[in-house]
């Protein structure tokens, strides 16, 4: 199985919905998966910009974060074995955008899907030595069992949707 195939299989096992899309079709996909209001950080895809979307707030204030239902961010690498996506801290606020809203939509370039945890940590090691200050290996929604049974949406998102961008 390709890394992408095994990644989406892992997502399915985690009950994390996912969509494959080209860059051209991305806006249509986002129309479906963004539950408004949406806050976002740039997706870092050549030839695609969120500034064209009027339903998305970039550079959100704390109030925007609190009021939004969906947080839309880029993510990568992704880890096929685990169905994990890595959210990178940046000045555009990817970390809070991915964390504060009910729903996190993570957009992953196909080429960023790595087979294993070890491969991902290797890549992150290089990136950290290059100046990356925060990387969260996120697997499924936030969860707690502290209240007597498993509940999603403890402090972070209750649901996660992953979009894999083909050809990137």
């Amino acid at each position: 199985m390709s890394s992408v195939g095994s990644f989406t299989a892992s997502l399915s096992e985690l009950d994390v919905p996912w969509t494959r899309s080209t860059v051209d079709a991305l806006d249509g996909v986002l129309d479906d998966v963004l539950a408004p209001p949406t806050v976002a950080a740039p997706l870092g895809l050549d030839g695609y910009s969120l500034t064209d979307r009027s339903d998305v707030t970039l550079d959100p204030t704390p109030g925007d974060l609190d009021g939004a239902t969906t947080g839309l961010t880029a993510a990568g690498p992704a880890i096929a074995d685990y169905g994990s996506v890595v959210v990178r801290a940046d000045a555009a606020g990817s970390e809070p955008v991915s964390l504060y809203c009910e729903r996190h939509v993570a957009v992953v370039a196909e080429s960023a899907v790595l087979p294993s945890m070890r491969a991902a940590i290797g890549e992150l090691g290089d990136a950290i030595r290059d100046g990356l200050t925060g990387a969260v290996v996120a697997t499924g929604p936030s969860a707690t069992a502290d209240m007597g049974e498993l509940v999603y949406g403890a402090h972070g998102p209750t649901e996660v949707h992953v979009v894999v961008v083909e050809g990137r």
Binding site: P62, A89, A91, P96, I128, T133, G134, V136, V137, A138
Partner: peptide, 22 residues
Amino acid sequence: SYVSLLTPPVDTPTLDFDADET
């Protein structure tokens, strides 16, 4: 769910909820 690798100070805007400012 989360394995955070933080190499602080992190490059994330500070959040001032009272002033509603980053």
